[in-house]
Computed example of a mutant assay.
Amino acid sequence: MAKTVFITGASRGFGKLWAEALLQRGDKVVATARDLSALDDLVTKYGDNILPLQLNVNDREADFAAITKAKQHFGSIDVLINNAGYGLFGTVEETTEQQAREQMETNFFGLLWLTQAVLPVMREQGHGHIIQLSSVLGLVTLPVLGLYNASKFAVEGLSETLAAEVKGFGINVTLIEPNGFATDWSGASALQTEAMPAYDAVRAAFQEGVSGDIWGVPEATTPAVLQLIDAENPPLRLFLGNQGYPWVKQVYQGRYAEWDNWNEVSTAAHGK
C-alpha cells in the first residue's frame, strides 16, 4: 500500500536518493529543500506524486506550516524522515558561538520542530513512523567533530524518549545511524572552523583515521530504508553500513570495563 512520506533535506545525498526511490515505487513524497530547483528533475518525472516545498528547518513556524500544507495536500503523513543536517568540522576550542548555535539549530532543533509539528497529525491518524537521521557519531565520537557529535547525541536522547511517549498512539520512532558514506556531507555541505595550529596533530590523526576504504556507497542504503519504512515493527535503532556496529560494540565494551572498575566508588556515593 502506497505511503505518504515527508522528507527534509531532499535536494542531495541520502534525502534525494531516498525520495526518488519512494517515488519510483509509487509512494507520495513531500520533499523539502532550501533550493527548490534541486527538485525540478523529480517534479518533471513524477508529477503529482511529489509536493516540493521550500523550507529552512531552522524556522519553527515554517516547519509547522509545511506539515499543515502536506497534510492538506495528500490527506495524511505516514512517515516523517528528518534528514536535513550538515557536518561542522573543527575542534571544540576552535568553534565559534555562531557555528555552535547554527549546528544545533539545524541538526537538533529543526528536527525537534518538525517532530512536534507532525505528532498531532499522526496521533489523529492513529499511526505513523518518525525516522530521525542520527549517526554512528550519536553513539560514539570522533575528535574534530565535537559539535556534530553533540547534536547527534541530543537527537538520540530526544528520540529514545519520544519513542516511549508515543508508542501508545501507534507511532513508531527509528534512529538511523549511518557510518561514513561517500556523500557530500564532508564536502560541499560541510562547514569548517578556523584552524588553530595547536591542533594540527589532532587534525592529522583524524584525517589518517578516516582515510582508506571505509566509506559506504550511498545508493546501497536505499533497500534498507525502504525495508525499514515497510516494517510492521521497526527497530528503535538501525545502523547503515558495516563500520558502525563493530566500532560501537568495541567502544561500549571499554565503557563497561571502566564502569566496572569504578563501580565500588559509584555505589558508595549512593550513601546507603
Results as ranks from 00 to 15, higher is better:
V155M: 11
I176M: 12
P178H: 06
P178S: 10
L158F: 15
N172H: 15
A150V: 06
E156G: 00
F169E: 06
A182H: 06
E160I: 06
E165Q: 12
L162D: 09
G170F: 05
G157E: 10
P178F: 03
F169G: 04
L175C: 01
S151C: 04
S151G: 07
E165P: 00
G168Y: 03
E177Q: 12
G157Q: 12
E165C: 06
V166C: 07
N179H: 08
A163M: 10
G157P: 02
V173R: 09
K152G: 02
T174Y: 06
K167Q: 12
A164E: 15
G180R: 14
G157T: 11
G170A: 13
G168H: 10
N179I: 00
E156P: 00
P178M: 09
I171Q: 10
A154N: 09
L175K: 10
F181A: 08
V166N: 07
F153A: 07
K152C: 03
S151R: 12
S151V: 00
V166Y: 01
K167S: 11
L158H: 08
A164L: 15
E177M: 04
L158G: 03
F181E: 04
N172K: 14
F181P: 01
T161N: 13
I176N: 03
I176G: 02
N179L: 04
S159P: 00
V173M: 11
S151I: 01
S151K: 11
E156H: 09
A154R: 14
F169W: 08
S151D: 05
A164S: 12
L158E: 06
L162S: 07
E177R: 10
F153S: 03
T161R: 15
T174E: 13
E160S: 10
V166K: 05
G168F: 03
E165N: 09
L175D: 02
S159L: 12
L175P: 01
G168N: 14
L175I: 00
A164K: 14
G168W: 04
A164Y: 02
A150Y: 04
L158Q: 08
V166I: 12
E156I: 05
L162F: 05
G168R: 13
A150S: 15
P178C: 10
F153W: 14
A163R: 15
F153I: 03
K167N: 04
I171P: 01
K152E: 03
F181V: 09
E156R: 14
E160G: 03
K152D: 05
L175R: 10
K167T: 08
K167L: 14
I171W: 02
E165Y: 01
K167F: 01
V173S: 08
A182M: 06
S159D: 05
N172M: 07
A150F: 00
E160R: 15
A182L: 09
T174Q: 13
F169M: 14
V155T: 12
T174R: 15
T174W: 06
K152L: 05
P178L: 05
E177L: 04
E177G: 04
S151M: 08
E156V: 05
K152N: 06
N179P: 00
N179Y: 07
A154Q: 08
A154C: 06
S159I: 06
N179C: 10
T174V: 08
T174N: 13
L175M: 11
N179S: 14
A154T: 03
A163Y: 02
L162C: 05
S151Y: 04
